[in-house]
Simulated scan of single mutants.
Amino acid sequence: MIKKVVVIGPESTGKSTLCEQLAGYYSTAWVPEYAREYLLKNGTNYTYDDLLIIAQGQVTLEEKHISSFDPGHEKHAALFVDTDLYVMKVWSEYVFGKCHPWILDQIAERQYHLYLLCDTDLPWVKDELREYPDLESRRELYYIYKDILVNQSVPWANISGNYEQRLQKAVKAVDEMLKQ
């Protein structure tokens, strides 16, 4: 059985880096964030409807990785996912004040085994796709994610510190999840 680990949090908190590090550490695969690909191709002037397209693309990309996952060749049966539909919900509500029902339905249907919430204690890294460089907005978003995780049933761990400390905290949480 594939155990899916989602890495979430505000932008520029090391989510993609952590997914890549964990996939390397566990000799397994990771699912990149579809939004980056979409926005690089279509531009950053997105609409509410674009967020539904991005959410559907994220699910499609995740399903593609799941279907090509070969437990016989993977060291561990873990798949690391860079963002999920909670991220789409937060993004949609934060920017547009509403969320498409399809995204909410998918949140209820999709199953994950662990969430890793990346804290805002890494320095901001400028990127043409990032929108909220100020720490105040990033902290506000962090607490929105934390509130979501506290109020759902899947185990989660807060990931903070420098890149090495983050990896060590994530490995500890993943190892605990894999034992179950």
Results as ranks from 00 to 15, higher is better:
65 H>M: 13
74 E>I: 00
87 V>L: 06
30 W>F: 15
113 H>R: 01
29 A>H: 15
64 K>E: 15
147 D>T: 12
140 E>K: 15
132 Y>I: 01
54 I>H: 10
45 N>R: 15
141 L>E: 07
91 W>P: 00
103 I>S: 07
160 S>C: 11
78 A>N: 00
39 L>P: 03
114 L>P: 06
93 E>T: 12
110 R>E: 12
55 A>H: 09
56 Q>I: 01
113 H>A: 02
25 Y>M: 02
86 Y>M: 11
31 V>W: 12
30 W>N: 03
106 Q>F: 07
30 W>M: 04
55 A>M: 08
118 C>F: 09
25 Y>A: 02
107 I>F: 07
132 Y>L: 07
114 L>E: 03
158 N>R: 15
134 D>G: 02
40 L>S: 11
150 V>A: 09
31 V>P: 11
143 Y>G: 01
131 E>C: 11
89 K>D: 10
150 V>C: 08
100 H>L: 06
68 S>Y: 12
145 Y>M: 06
92 S>H: 09
43 G>V: 04
38 Y>D: 10
89 K>H: 13
129 L>R: 01
138 R>C: 03
93 E>Y: 10
34 Y>L: 04
142 Y>C: 00
137 S>T: 15
62 E>V: 03
117 L>A: 04
153 S>N: 13
57 G>V: 00
26 Y>W: 03
43 G>K: 06
92 S>F: 04
118 C>I: 07
103 I>K: 04
99 C>L: 06
62 E>Y: 11
121 D>K: 09
71 P>R: 13
153 S>L: 09
51 L>Y: 05
144 I>G: 01
48 Y>L: 01
105 D>V: 04
